[in-house]
Design a protein around this nucleic acid. Structure first.
Lengths: 141, 141
DNA sequence: CTAGAATAGTTTGACTATCAAGTTAATTGA
DNA sequence: TCAATTAACTTGATAGTCAAACTATTCTAG
């Protein structure tokens, strides 16, 4: 456990990092003609594979009511499709279409470009360490 | 410079980290009765002090048209105030009110709590390194 | 000095995002 | 079996967002 001062500094560095990423993502999606909420859904589905509405809503931090209309628009835009799930006839799985996969791939490339700019500030060993830290942190919350 | 494989892994770890933070923030602000966009503005103003509309819009990643209506609502909610700036009569500075400062402080405390949960996965030395990496990355993009 | 270009911010109209609360259908469990 | 829970959808209200057009300043090239 680190000291309170370090915790505070990490906290503010994380907030700044998060705000910068948000700002970048917002600008990027505006240029691609898709909304922030929609690209978030595509990113999560691309990383996790098909998800039920409830699980996707949890990962997005929104209610299922909000997600229903979001998925409606994603379907209309041809990026995802709804699928019935075996085992629970109430549940609906959301899956990327081929077009959705492609948008995910393109967006992922933009992220990779940004990641390269970020990690230019670190050498190879530090990148390894940074990756290890991130993975452990992601598991911790 | 690290290998492409490591870059890819870091990229996906960053995306996951970002998505989790977004989800957390979205849930937190819902419980506080304020919107995500509004708390982002408050966070940025709290960290940077008064900003002109253009600068704040840049940091949020939105257009000035969007920001105008956002600031209108923040003013109505008593969280910020518009101030004239000396030197350029076109410019408008946005500043947190006392109430806005308080909301910033409360929200910052919630972030600190989350940061502590995250960094529980790291020891003191690793926290120091992680902070150093974040600060350098924040400077790099 | 001054006219045209650039910049800061606002307004408008159309669309999207979001929530809470209520609804329907399916599942669980006592 | 049937009451409680869960998954998803619907609805009505409010907020967020953009592009494009607009006003008021400031800058700049001649």
């Amino acid at each position: 456990m680190a000291s309170d001062v370090i915790q505070q500094q990490i906290n503010h560095a994380i907030i700044e990092f998060y705000e910068r990423l948000s700002s970048w993502e917002q600008s990027v999606v505006r240029d691609q003609g898709v909304s922030l909420a929609q690209i978030h859904a595509v990113e999560i589905l691309g990383a996790n594979g098909p998800l039920r509405m409830k699980d996707l809503a949890d990962k997005l931090g929104v209610t299922t009511g909000t997600l229903t209309v979001l998925v409606d628009r994603l379907v209309k835009n041809g990026l995802v499709e709804r699928q019935t799930t075996e085992g629970d006839r109430r549940a609906v799985a959301v899956n990327l279409t081929a077009s959705g996969q492609q948008m995910f791939a393109e967006h992922d490339q933009l992220h990779l470009q940004l990641t390269k700019e970020m990690t230019a500030a670190l050498d190879a060993t530090e990148c390894q360490q940074f990756l290890s830290f991130l993975e452990r942190i992601n598991r911790a919350f």
